[in-house]
């Protein structure tokens, strides 16, 4: 059917709409409305599930509580492995929210047929599909590890820039820029590319052929969420324990 449309209206292809946004004006500021709409959905879903899971807490968990406890233990393990047994507890909310938000965003983009809801401009997709979201998350991660470093080691945190030798100073400074850059672009690129591939395949062959790619997309989405959260935790852990400290086996 889409192929038909391709023949008749070549402009239908434009519905792929890369880089078009639904602009909202807030004062003099421009906002990407479609990102906020889906992110509110994701946030709402997370809050709702958390509320339902903790509404009636039992010592012997069942159902949703059990599932969310599993999720929490997963997040705790992740944070514990990267940050270390002693310091990981205050960072569980940050790392966990990173993981949950990215994961639910990615999967909502892959599983929910957002495109059935028509917007005046742009289209609904995973919030992580927008560079603003991923850069926001990456910058927050940078802030988080700077905060972790300064609060744990004070001004001694600066010592890490000349470790193991002052020659590496430029590279160490550069690292602070490459970390958020790679974090944000990795997530953004993966999710956008996945959605584009699926969209293109659906346009070309609407039946069955896109399915394996969609499944692969689900897998990639989950992995990207895990990678983002793990790297964030690793950066925080590194900032806390210091470069010269013990290396991770």
């Amino acid at each position: 059917m889409a192929l038909n449309m391709l023949m008749i209206h070549p402009l239908v292809l434009a519905k792929l709409e890369v880089g078009q946004h639904l602009y909202w004006q807030l004062g003099g500021l421009k906002l990407h409305g479609q990102v906020f709409l889906t992110s509110w959905f994701v946030i709402g879903a997370l809050l709702l599930v958390s509320f339902l899971a903790t509404r009636n807490i039992q010592r012997i968990p069942s159902g949703l509580q059990n599932f969310m406890e599993y999720a929490l233990e997963f997040i705790r393990d992740l944070a514990k492995n990267q940050i270390g047994e002693k310091e990981y507890r205050p960072w569980v909310p940050f790392v966990g929210t990173l993981f949950l938000f990215i994961f639910v965003s990615n999967w909502s983009g892959a599983l929910i047929p957002w495109k059935l809801i028509h917007l005046p401009s742009g289209e609904l997709a995973a919030p992580t599909n927008d560079i603003n979201t991923t850069v926001a998350l990456a910058l927050l991660t940078s802030l988080a590890y700077f905060y972790a470093g300064f609060s744990n080691r004070g001004l001694g945190y600066f010592a890490k820039y000349i470790e193991p030798t002052p020659i590496l100073l430029p590279i160490n400074i550069l690292e602070d820029f490459t970390k958020p850059l790679s974090l944000s672009f990795r997530l953004f690129g993966n999710i956008l590319a996945d959605e584009l591939v699926v969209a293109v395949l659906v346009l070309l062959v609407p039946l069955f052929v896109p399915l394996p790619v969609m499944v692969l997309g689900l897998f990639t989405s989950a992995i990207q969420a895990l990678i983002f959260a793990t790297l964030a935790a690793a950066y925080i852990g590194e900032a806390i324990e210091g470069h010269g400290g013990e290396e991770h086996g």
Partner: peptide, 25 residues
């Protein structure tokens, strides 16, 4: 296209982290 979506998203994310901390973690 980087614009005010970025800081607002960051604020939103921090609020989500705080809310989830109270509600979930």
């Amino acid at each position: 296209d980087l614009d005010a979506t970025l800081p607002l998203m960051a604020v939103q994310f921090v609020l989500l982290a705080v809310a989830l901390n109270v509600l979930f973690y």
